[in-house]
């Protein structure tokens, strides 16, 4: 059998093994900058069409008014978060004079033009990118609270993790007791788990969970959600705390990227 005939005869097997090999290599090269560049180009290339199809869904809405109202709402939410934080701070530090509290958020509105969604991956594609001053790791918020953060960005588009993505982690505190913990996705459904909270901690069902502000990525005081249920791990040192997110992820249409924030509660 001639080499060409052999290749033709075995082309399925050759294609299969090459495909498997390249896929495995890609899986192990995900942090490679070239892969990230190709990702950015691909999202940018498809972005135009994603925009158009998504726009079809919005024709029946009063879009401009909604955008304006949402922006106002988000600013009020952020201001409200800051004020709530300030009130709690005030309770604890009421004897201190010269208490200063300043907050300034620079927001950019991003329309969601695509979702990538399955049991583990929950991300959205936004119609804003580097040209609007959006960069990797910036916080993404809605009027209800923290929604996610920027994962990858191209010139005019960005991909953002949502809280329900398996890769998402954020440092938080119980707003009432100031007990810290780490929020992550609950492995299934649309709930979050508050981890690293020691047994016998004073947390209760209904407590509000907010960002701690310890990381430089997220402003402090952003609402994450409310504690829905609490139980103790049988063997571990920590509690099992389930948190209901404040953001309704099934209704997301626009979000706000926090370009810069400056919170000084102390």
């Amino acid at each position: 059998m001639l080499p060409n005939e052999l290749l033709l005869h075995r082309r399925d097997f050759i294609t299969f093994f090459c495909g498997v090999l390249v896929s495995v290599v890609l899986i192990f090269s995900n942090n490679n900058s070239q892969i990230q560049n190709v990702r950015a180009w691909t999202v940018e290339g498809f972005g135009f069409f994603l925009n158009k199809v998504t726009a079809l869904r919005g024709y029946y809405q009063l879009r401009e008014k909604n955008l304006w109202l949402n922006e106002q709402n988000a600013n009020l939410m952020l201001e409200n978060s800051r004020l709530r934080e300030a009130a709690f701070e005030n309770d604890r530090l009421k004897n201190l004079l010269n208490f200063k509290s300043r907050s300034k958020f620079d927001l950019v509105i991003g329309k969601i033009i695509g979702h990538s969604q399955d049991s583990f991956i929950n991300s959205v594609i936004l119609d804003v990118g580097k040209n609007e001053g959006v960069y990797k790791n910036m916080a993404v918020v809605t009027a209800q609270g923290l929604a996610g953060k920027i994962f990858s960005v191209s010139e005019n588009k960005a991909i953002a993790y949502l809280l329900l993505d398996r890769n998402f982690r954020v440092g938080v505190i119980d707003q009432r007791t100031r007990i810290p913990g780490i929020i992550r996705w609950f492995k299934t459904g649309s709930e979050l788990v508050l981890g690293e909270v020691p047994k016998r901690s004073d947390v209760k069902v209904g407590d509000k969970i907010v960002t701690s502000g310890i990381s430089r990525i997220f402003p402090g005081g952003l609402t994450i959600g409310e504690i829905k249920s609490i139980s103790d791990e049988k063997l571990g040192m920590f509690m099992n705390i389930v948190v209901e997110p404040a953001v309704d992820f099934s209704r997301l249409e626009e979000v706000f990227v926090v370009k810069s924030h400056n919170i000084d509660l102390n």
Binding site: G19, S23, L26, I27, S29, S116, S123, I159
Partner: peptide, 21 residues
Amino acid sequence: GVVLDFFGTGFVGVSSLGNIL
């Protein structure tokens, strides 16, 4: 598979591997 993986936050190459198998 590869193109679709670019739009998510997971590993690039997983969908293509699943498709091929």
